[in-house]
Design a protein around this nucleic acid. Structure first.
Length: 545
DNA sequence: GCCGTTTTCGGCCCGACTGTTTTCAGTCG
């Protein structure tokens, strides 16, 4: 595991242990530091080497010292000491849904339970009966949590969460009248993985919306249902929250429930400094509602420029917003080409033509095609496609070279540029390993939605791309936004797929979101330029015909 | 434990929901 993630995990566990001890504010402090590490744009070791650990939000003297200890000794004494104070099973107990540190601690001290199995036995033996604050419903809740199916409450990949949210929204739209519906939460921020899906609705008839939500075919269980929100778990184990809000508060609610938590805390602090209060119902001066219908209003009321959802992580965006200097992130209309489209050599002419026609419909200016299953020296269908494009679209011929072990092999021109495929099946390259010689315009196939690249490997490939002046291909949820951000801030280029996939769905939106999450601006996107800089290519691009 | 263009000490977001409660504690996001 990458150092940042491993350290974050330890800090989170320290937080849980402190919770068990009844600490009031320390746990949240450790969690905040952990979240900062998780979204840190570089290896924490590099930050430590520069002596700048304290610049990380939520990291002060004490946590800095613990981080240094970990980097030096591979352990943190404070953490080891805390762990000795409680049975390991208590942490498992407090992580069950509906249970927390207080409850776990009471089970331990008052019933002598040290873990999930012992708790099961204790319930079966009726040892919880008569325990103060534990009625039959509460005991049943605990019992159900203990026997929850495997995978319950798990995190989903970005693509999985996106598709699920699309199905839920479609179901709601088809079955109940709503004024507006939006997806919020970490899915809207395009996080790499999604803990729970947040859906926001305005409607005059909340009960009807909840009824429709309850009737969603994939629902497995309802966690809770009140007058403003309902939480369900679907069969895949993912949790979905639905909230109904008033139209005049839609923007405030969307802002609030989009998060991130740390971003919102910053906003509320700023509000307080302006003698304002912000919550999911709006921005208030005293009792008076001064903003809330749109997100733009909410930010404006706080004297801030609008912040795109993808970068709301308290990673410097709030400061820039207060100065009115939020970067303009790449947007879908900026993508004027695609340099990485595959076409089977034997594909029917109709399918080949559709590739060009779709690109023309989208108004693309260039299209780079890898023809699979044909000798690179042969023209394949490229000439025919060039004729079809008839000067309206620059059709480029790309070849893919697989694996760093491939050496200098690969087809000779005539191709316009080469794409490096590091070879995800192989073991990741070492830090000192070099890419194969010869230039590349794009480094691609770094992962798939189900198998995102290992962060260390992705970091190496990003470096290859940077050194070779090639663009790093972005996928939905990978590489991690922190790697993308470090790459583009170092001056690197990215490639964002823009052609709609042939298998339906429009997940190219998600790759765009991942790029935006990495603070990518248009200038850093190789296919946002009408004349893509293919300087890293083995040969110069052919002239447009 | 962290943080501060009013603070280096005294705060720390805040509301919904649930179960068990005659007014609240715990959990969650």
């Amino acid at each position: 595991m990458a150092t940042n993630a491993a350290l974050a995990e330890i800090l989170l566990e320290i937080a849980d242990l402190l919770d068990l001890g009844g600490e009031k504010f320390k746990p949240e402090a450790y969690r905040r530091a952990a979240r900062s590490l998780q979204s840190l744009a570089e290896d924490v070791r590099a930050v430590a080497d520069r002596g700048e650990l304290a610049t990380i939000p939520g990291v002060g003297d004490a946590i800095s010292e613990k981080i240094r200890e970990y980097l030096r000794d591979g352990r943190i004494e404070y953490y080891d000491r805390l762990r000795q104070q409680y049975p390991a099973g208590l942490l498992e107990l407090m992580r069950l849904p509906g249970l927390g540190p207080k409850t776990a601690r009471r089970f331990w001290l008052e019933v002598g339970v040290e873990g999930p199995q012992e708790l099961k036995d204790a319930i079966a033996a009726g040892k919880l009966n008569g325990l103060k604050g534990f009625g039959p419903r509460k005991i049943e809740l605990v019992r159900a949590a203990l026997s929850a199916p495997a995978g319950s409450g798990r995190r989903a990949t970005l693509v999985e969460a996106y598709d699920l949210a699309e199905r839920i929204v479609a179901h709601l739209r088809a079955t109940t009248p709503m004024e507006s519906v939006a997806v919020a939460g970490s899915l809207r921020r395009r996080r790499e993985t999604i803990g729970d899906i947040d859906i926001l609705v305005t409607s005059r008839d909340p009960e009807r919306v909840f009824d429709a939500f309850t009737a969603f075919p994939e629902r497995r269980a309802t966690r809770l249902r009140g007058s403003t929100k309902e939480t369900i778990e679907v069969v895949s184990g993912v949790q979905v929250d639905l909230r109904v809000v008033a139209p005049e508060a839609f923007g405030a609610a969307l802002q609030y429930f989009t998060g991130s938590k740390d971003h919102n805390v910053r906003l509320r602090t700023i509000a307080r400094d302006h003698e304002l209060k912000v919550n999911e119902y709006g921005v208030f001066r005293g009792e008076e509602l001064i903003a809330g219908a749109t997100e733009e209003d909410v930010y404006a009321a706080l004297g801030l420029a609008f912040v795109p959802p993808e970068i709301r992580e308290n990673q410097g965006e709030v400061e820039l917003a207060s100065l009115g200097r939020v970067p303009r992130l790449v947007e879908a209309p900026d993508l004027v080409g695609d340099l990485h489209v595959h076409l089977a050599a034997g594909a029917p002419t109709q399918e080949q033509n559709a590739l060009v026609d779709r690109a023309l419909e989208r108004g693309l200016r260039h299209l780079g095609i890898v023809v699979d299953g044909v000798d690179g020296a042969k023209a394949g269908p490229i000439d025919a496609l060039r004729a079809r494009a008839a000067g309206r679209l620059m059709v480029l011929r790309a070849v893919e070279v697989e694996g760093w072990a491939a050496g200098s092999s690969g087809s000779a021109p005539p191709h316009d540029y080469r794409i490096l495929r590091p070879g995800t099946e192989s073991s990741p390259p070492s830090k000192t390993e070099k890419p194969p010689p010869g230039g590349f315009a794009v480094v691609a196939h770094l992962g798939t939605p189900d198998a995102p690249p290992d962060p260390v490997a992705a970091g190496t490939w990003a470096r290859w791309a940077l050194e070779g002046h090639a663009a790093m291909d972005i996928g939905p949820g990978w590489p991690e936004a922190s790697i993308v951000r470090r790459h583009v801030e170092a001056g690197g280029l990215v490639h964002i797929p823009s052609s709609p996939p042939t298998d339906g769905g429009d997940r190219s939106l998600l790759a765009l979101g991942t790029a935006r999450r990495g603070w990518t601006t248009r200038e850093r996107v190789i296919n946002a330029s009408a004349a893509p800089p293919l300087g890293g290519a083995a040969s110069r691009p052919a002239k447009s015909r």
